[in-house]
């Protein structure tokens, strides 16, 4: 009879983390950035139908990178949680913090108890109002949660892109300006990213009750170009 191998908890955590990081690093990156009049969410994504960025609720958006089936399942769970909460209480009681916490709990649970960790990294973005601040909640594969008031970078080259964003990001600019900064940071110095390779959405007050809107086609081209004009 063979004895089971002993693996120290440290080693197990290290292996799990390495596995998750590898999975996430395979995908392309995403930036969520807060602008003066809203939040801009931009991902490098050649697909027009398999989204990394989605609507959760009136003022809440979801961004995920990594393994599509894993973050999409979490996205749907988020929509469900938000809609059920809004029905049970009131639309204004649905908040991103509680959802981000639920994601963190779940990811943390799977990381320590599961056979394999989820290869995903998420941002839950919330456009503020009179009672809540505009916030980005960053949830990592092992359940670490941080909140930011400027920007979050997810995915493969997150470190390098975040360095570029640190140099160029300015708080309080327009959505279009923040989008151009984020696209430049995603692209890096050696290439440019055209509208065909980008998935862009905004959370903005002017969209009505449901603040989330995808930016596509001519509107996206105009937003990307308006600096030169």
């Amino acid at each position: 009879m063979s004895m089971p191998y002993y693996v120290s908890p440290e080693q197990r955590m290290k292996d799990m983390a390495e596995y998750a990081q590898k999975g996430i690093a395979r995908g392309r990156s995403l930036i969520a950035a807060i602008a003066r009049d809203g939040i801009v969410l931009v991902a490098e994504n050649p697909s027009k139908t398999l989204h990394k960025i989605s609507e959760i609720y009136d003022r809440i958006a979801f961004c995920g990178v990594g393994k599509y089936n894993e973050y999409d399942q979490l996205r749907v769970a988020g929509v469900r949680q938000a809609d059920m909460k809004g029905l049970a209480y009131s639309r204004e009681d649905v908040d991103a913090r509680s959802l981000a916490n639920a994601y963190a709990q779940y990811l943390g649970h799977v990381f320590t108890e599961g056979i394999k960790p989820l290869e995903v990294e998420l941002v839950v973005a919330e456009l503020g109002n009179a009672t809540r601040e505009t916030r980005l909640y960053h949830v990592a594969y092992e359940g670490t949660i941080t909140d930011r008031e400027d920007f979050v970078v997810l995915g493969g080259d997150a470190g390098q892109i975040a360095d570029r964003m640190d140099d160029t990001y300015v708080a309080g600019v327009s959505i279009a300006e923040a989008l151009r900064t984020a696209v430049a940071a995603l692209a890096g110095p050696d290439r440019t990213l055209g509208p065909d390779l980008l998935e862009v959405a905004v959370l903005a007050e002017h969209n009505g009750r449901r603040c989330f809107a995808r930016v596509v086609g001519a509107e996206l081209e105009a937003m990307l170009a308006s600096a030169e004009a």
């Binding site: 949680q81 639920a102 709990q105």
Partner: peptide
């Protein structure tokens, strides 16, 4: 509120 996740 727990995440409403279901078996496939």
């Amino acid at each position: 509120m727990a995440l409403p996740l279901f078996p496939v």
